[in-house]
Simulated scan of single mutants.
Amino acid sequence: MKKFILAITCIWGTLTFARETRDSIAVFKNDINDIVLDDCDACGCAAGNGSSGFESLLNPQFIGIKYFAQHYKAKENLFVKDLTQDQYFNTLQLWGRVPVTKNLSLYASLPFHFHDKKNMQGDIRISGVGDMNLMGIYSILKSEAKVHQLNAGAGIKIPLGRFDEKGISGVNPSFQLGTGSWDYQMVLNYQYRKGNAAVIINTDYTVKTENKKHYRFGNQWNYAATGFYQLLTGKDIVFSVKTGIQGEVYDGNRQFSEPLPNTAGSALYGKLGFEAAYKRFSLGSEVMLPAYSHLAGGDIEAKSRFSIFLNIGI
């Protein structure tokens, strides 16, 4: 409970600062200029973050909520060759982004996870607050008419989620609410816009550290390329469709500094979605399907992902 109160206090303080300063900051409603990190990785929401790389949003100042669902197939035990176990990772995420200066923004997110996996012996469910993300995002380059933009960011993941040492003994050690470790993030985002079209290229890297239980999840690299096309533009309404690819690469986990087998992997997804805005409200959704999946040495297979968010400009 103390961790939850601390996280809410951090987000509330950040957003309060935004309300005090927003009058001096220009808001470009139709500017595809927001980049933030998700809190989930390809093997589950707890053991990493930034799986979707950056997300473009229509409101540069916002507070909102996002739902993110992942489905995987895994080996139920060492004596079964087939991937028979369904694993479902679900996250409700409170998030916000506030400008501090013309070129610098602060981003914060707090997830609530509810996961379950289906065993022959019965279902296993866990739920609770996850790890909090805090990040600073800086605009390095912005050309005339905003044709070219380059943004970079750095941040930390605060270990508010509970790490269960028993959970690492399963096929998927990422079936957790949190990593139990302080992790560090670096992000880079390039945007090209011309007319009603835009292309965004993202990459981010997360350095994960050893937790108090002497367990360390592997570092994570994400990359993505997404194309946008604006179908509708009005005084109060904007509607865009998007499609692209997203890749993820995971280093192996370690315990007591010793490498653990079948914990590294990679995956490549295709994605399709939309983003819309009406006055201060923005809505977006995305479906992702794997083109390639080799996770945990082949013991886990990615099946699908789905996300939807609703934000309010502040």
Rank of each mutant, 00 (worst) to 15 (best):
I137T: 04
L57S: 09
G122C: 02
T209Y: 03
S52G: 14
F217Y: 15
A198K: 02
N311K: 10
S266P: 00
D164T: 13
N196V: 06
Q220G: 03
K235I: 08
S143Q: 04
S174W: 10
I32T: 07
V207Y: 13
F89M: 10
L141H: 11
S143L: 02
E165T: 13
T206G: 01
L232H: 09
G128C: 09
F114Q: 08
N202Q: 11
K73M: 11
Y88R: 04
P259G: 08
L94V: 14
G218F: 06
E286N: 11
G136P: 04
S240R: 12
P259D: 11
S105V: 06
E165W: 02
K102H: 10
Y250A: 06
V199I: 15
G265D: 00
K142E: 14
T243K: 03
V171P: 01
V199F: 10
K157L: 07
K213C: 05
G180C: 06
A291S: 07
A225K: 06
V238K: 05
E144S: 08
K142H: 09
S139T: 15
G234T: 08
P111I: 02
T226G: 03
I126N: 02
A264R: 01
T14V: 13
Q149C: 00
N189Q: 12
A267L: 09
Y250F: 13
V98G: 01
R19Y: 05
C45G: 02
Q87T: 12
S240L: 15
E20R: 00
Q93T: 14
L37Q: 08
K303T: 12
Y107G: 03
D86V: 06
P159M: 12
T203V: 13
F281D: 04
G64I: 05
C40L: 09
C40H: 01
K235S: 09
L231C: 13
F114D: 05
P290D: 10
Q230H: 07
L310R: 07
L310N: 04
P111G: 08
V98N: 02
L289P: 00
A302I: 03
Y88M: 05
L57N: 12
Y278A: 08
A264L: 06
I5Y: 15
S127H: 07
G234I: 07
N262R: 01
G227S: 01
N30M: 03
